[in-house]
Write a protein that binds this DNA or RNA. Structure first.
Length: 589
RNA sequence: GGUUCGGUAGCUCAGCUGGAUAGAGCGUCAUCCUUCUAAGAUGAGGGCCAUUGGUUCGAAUCCAAUCCGAAUCACCA
């Protein structure tokens, strides 16, 4: 059992036997003792003192004695400072912990294994991926890895937004301006090629609007009447009617984009068990509307449009079917949720989608619950903040985006330069070098995007390159490589003999012991940053330890064996933690 | 206007189920490679935790109000 849990339970039991007071173990506050005080763990007494009507000193003494009696092999001493009861945990406990922990079994499996779907990425097929998509992809991947680490089964899916007016905009611009050019003929990556026409559309649209306004038209009217917009709208209509020529163009341009996406996904390490296409799903949900009407969850207005009234839930009225009988975004999503449920029978479904859709997902879950969809309660929205530039939001149509491919390439280049400057891998083959540059460059980028709370928006300054020192991916990768380098020299077979632990050795043991709790916390909050912070703290602690104590030249053979084991466990934990972020750690760098 | 989220060091961020003197990283300054990888370590400096009031033995953390910023409240997706 986890030591903190044990302390909580013992406290609860001791209070009961001492004073016949029932306090839930979860309510006992156990903290790591501040370094300036003696001890390892601290119980805050104020909470019960009041209830007991005794002074903290007395309660502390009685509780301390009782606890020590209950856990004689674990608690060696205790002291009381003001209302804080500090326990010192025995060397033996930590030594046994280090001895029994296996690098292959760092994370105990969950009791109730669940099947969880993670939907992420959701790209549009009219433009290449940008920095915001990277945050989405890395979050989705990481959450999937974290859940797997807990022992759950994960199904990764992607919904591609491959239809709609924005796609038609790229299409019409291509028709008008491309003269039959293709990605091949211009040797451009397909997604970038199509994205260029999306920008061209917007430029042309703006010019047309300006021209109309110059001709005396009101701005608002001009924005609706611009010929290129009319053309795009017409195209969408044709697409919906199944016009062969339009569909051909659509398929051709989408295939270019997919080729481009595939390259990017491969480079950043993203994959999906199943990809859904909106062109196939946008008509879903129709039966559900009927069902909702029958169940009186929905109601029909005079114009025959269908709505749900969510005002009792503190939300607004929401349309679910237009008066012309077509589905809206919400209807599709309800339909898709049902489809996914039928296909995979998952216990929960996590949507990695930007925070601009918080309202949408709130409504989605609510409607699914009201329709009594089987997995409705398992819908979670991993809402993440936008990535913004110092100048404000990124806008694809204005070309003010940090392109994913460019950024990834730049990161890999920087890692190449830095690695070469340090000259520590002269024995690597060319292939190994390329792999290493990728590992470090992507590690820096992924860590950068995952180390902050997902729900907060973040600002990325393209002028300042992403760091390789301090609270970064490469710092942790480096620590791992450093340990591995030592272990290559010392070997990894150890025989552990009972040992006194120095403060830093004990601290490492304590830090290692909290890994499973950190993973669980990250999973519970859908927040990989918890693991990023943990990995950083562990690496930092190891580096302090490393600077203070020698492993291969330890004071004694017994110490050496112990420290090799600590090295093995730290390296393995760093690897697991970084793996949960989707970041590889090199053996040498 | 309603709802939701945010405001902590020069910058980027932790800490928020109330607990001991508010922490990291970057940047600045100063030390440490004849000894296991210096992408490292050690130290210094840097704070009215947006403001005001309340609850409490105790508030960055909870409550209320105010100020500032963002998202959303589409028969777009």
């Amino acid at each position: 059992m986890n030591l903190i849990t044990l302390l909580k339970q013992t406290t609860s039991a001791s209070l009961d036997s001492l004073y016949q007071v029932k306090i839930q173990p979860e309510l006992v506050l156990v903290n790591a003792t501040k370094p300036e005080f003696e001890g390892d763990y601290t119980i805050v007494l104020f909470a019960f003192v009041k209830q007991l009507g005794k002074n903290p000193e007395v309660v502390g003494n009685e509780l301390g004695n009782a606890m020590q009696k209950a856990l004689p092999t674990i608690i060696t001493e205790f002291n009381i400072v003001k209302g804080f009861l500090n326990f010192t945990i025995s060397n033996d406990y930590w030594f046994e912990f280090i001895k029994n922990l296996s690098p292959n079994e760092l994370m105990p499996a969950v009791e109730h294994k669940r099947k969880i779907m993670v939907e992420y990425s959701s790209p549009n097929t009219n433009k290449p991926l940008h920095l915001g998509h990277l945050r989405n992809n890395f979050l989705g991947w990481s959450i999937a890895e974290i859940l797997k680490l807990q022992g759950h089964e994960v199904v990764k899916t992607c919904i591609v937004n491959d239809r709609g007016i924005h796609i038609c905009k790229s299409m019409i611009a291509w028709q008008l301006f491309a003269n039959g050019a293709t990605p091949e003929s211009t040797s451009k990556k397909g997604d970038h090629f199509v994205g260029d026409y999306y920008v061209k559309y917007n430029d042309a649209y703006k010019a047309e609007v300006a021209e109309l306004v110059a001709g005396g038209m009101m701005q608002e009217m001009a924005e609706k009447e611009a010929p290129i917009l009319k053309g795009a709208q017409e195209m969408l209509l044709k697409w919906e009617q199944g016009d062969a020529a339009t569909l051909d163009l659509w398929k051709k341009m989408n295939s270019w984009v997919y080729e481009g996406f595939e390259v990017t996904y491969k480079k950043i390490g993203s994959d999906f068990f199943k990809t859904y296409y909106e062109s196939n799903t946008y008509l879903l949900g129709k039966e559900l509307v009927e069902e909702g009407l029958t169940k009186k969850v929905f109601y029909q207005k005079e114009d025959s449009s269908v709505w749900i009234d969510l005002t009792p839930d503190g939300l607004d009225e929401k349309i679910v079917r237009r008066k012309d009988g077509t589905s809206v975004y919400m209807t599709q999503d309800i339909g898709l949720a049902q489809l996914k449920q039928k296909e995979f029978n998952t216990d929960a479904s996590i949507y990695v989608v930007g925070d601009e859709q918080n309202y949408h997902f709130k409504v989605l879950k609510l409607i699914c619950q009201k329709l009594e969809q089987p997995a409705a309660d398992g819908i979670y929205h991993l809402s993440y903040g936008m990535v913004e530039l110092p100048t404000g939001k990124m806008k694809s149509r204005e070309g003010t985006v940090v392109d994913a491919d460019d950024l990834v390439d730049e990161m890999i280049n920087i890692s190449k330069e830095k690695t070469e400057a340090l000259g520590k891998v002269s024995d690597f083959t060319n292939e190994q070098l390329i792999a290493l540059y990728n590992t470090i460059g992507l590690g820096a980028l992924k860590f950068f995007l995952l180390r902050v709370d997902p729900k907060k928006k973040m600002i990325f300054n393209p002028e300042e390159s992403i760091d390789f020192h301090g609270f970064t991916g490469p710092f942790i990768q480096y620590t791992h490589a450093r340990i591995k380098s030592i272990l290559r020299k010392t070997g990894t077979t150890v025989t552990l003999t009972t040992n006194e632990l120095l403060p830093l050795e004990k601290q490492l043991a304590i830090e290692l012991s909290t890994f499973p709790a950190m993973v669980n916390e990250a999973a519970e909050n859908l927040d990989p940053s918890k693991i990023a912070i943990y990995a950083f703290n562990l690496a930092k602690l190891f580096n302090t330890f490393y600077a203070e104590h020698s492993i291969s030249n330890a004071e004694s053979e017994i110490k050496k064996q112990l420290r090799i084991q600590l090295g093995i466990l730290t390296a393995a934990t760093l690897q697991k933690a970084m793996g949960a972020l989707g970041i590889a750690v090199p053996e040498q760098m």
